[in-house]
């Protein structure tokens, strides 16, 4: 059930209040070049559907709009953000990072990039958006209980992926870390 919010002022207030959060949500999911276009698309869709906006859960609702918008944006794979790519840029700017830290980050990034999209989304909502399960469930269109289960499983699979990314090729990771550290 929803509460109609149909005046420009309420939209304007909400836009200004939640712009940063929505922009961040999108920057976590598409590459930086594509983000502004997607942000514009999300707020345009939100305006068109403003009569559906639930006042009590506005930000999760906006995230949900963004999620569906991104489902379309993802048709162009080049727009999809890869954490390892972002990490390479960040790491290049921090040459003093300890090699072990870089190794860990690379493994974590590789593990995250290798996960299925559903697990990635659950982890993003939990870790980066910091949403409580009740709100994260709204974004995903599932029950709070279902979100708890998905989160538990995603965390478990993420830890397994990190282990896998680290153990088979430790020497390779060290080489990569040394390369990054040398930049």
């Amino acid at each position: 059930m929803v509460i109609p919010i149909d005046d420009e002022q309420s939209y304007t207030d909400s836009y200004r209040l939640h712009f940063a959060a929505v922009e961040s949500y999108i920057r976590r999911r598409v590459n930086a070049d594509a983000a502004p276009d997607v942000v514009a698309e999300v707020f345009t869709v939100a305006w068109r559907r403003w009569h559906e906006a639930p006042r009590e859960r506005l930000l999760p609702w906006l995230y949900g709009v963004a999620r569906l918008t991104l489902a379309n944006a993802y048709r162009d794979e080049r727009r999809r953000a890869q954490l390892a790519g972002s990490l390479a840029e960040v790491t290049a700017e921090h040459v003093a990072d300890h090699a072990a830290d870089v190794t860990e980050r690379l493994a974590v990034a590789a593990a995250f990039d290798g996960m299925n999209p559903a697990d990635q989304e659950v982890l993003r909502l939990d870790i980066w958006e910091g949403l409580p399960p009740r709100d994260a469930a709204v974004v995903l269109g599932c029950t709070t209980a279902a979100f708890h289960v998905r989160l538990h499983r995603a965390r478990r699979r993420f830890r397994q992926a990190v282990t896998t990314a680290t153990e088979p090729f430790p020497a390779q990771q060290e080489v990569l870390a040394a390369e990054w550290g040398a930049r």
Binding site: E104, R105, V108
Partner: peptide
């Protein structure tokens, strides 16, 4: 690193927190 993997992931936030770009 496994025990800290989630903390590491949190630190890798591509949006770099919530600052507006």
């Amino acid at each position: 690193m496994n025990g800290n993997a989630l903390h590491t992931l949190k630190a890798l936030d591509p949006a770099g927190g919530s600052q507006v770009h």
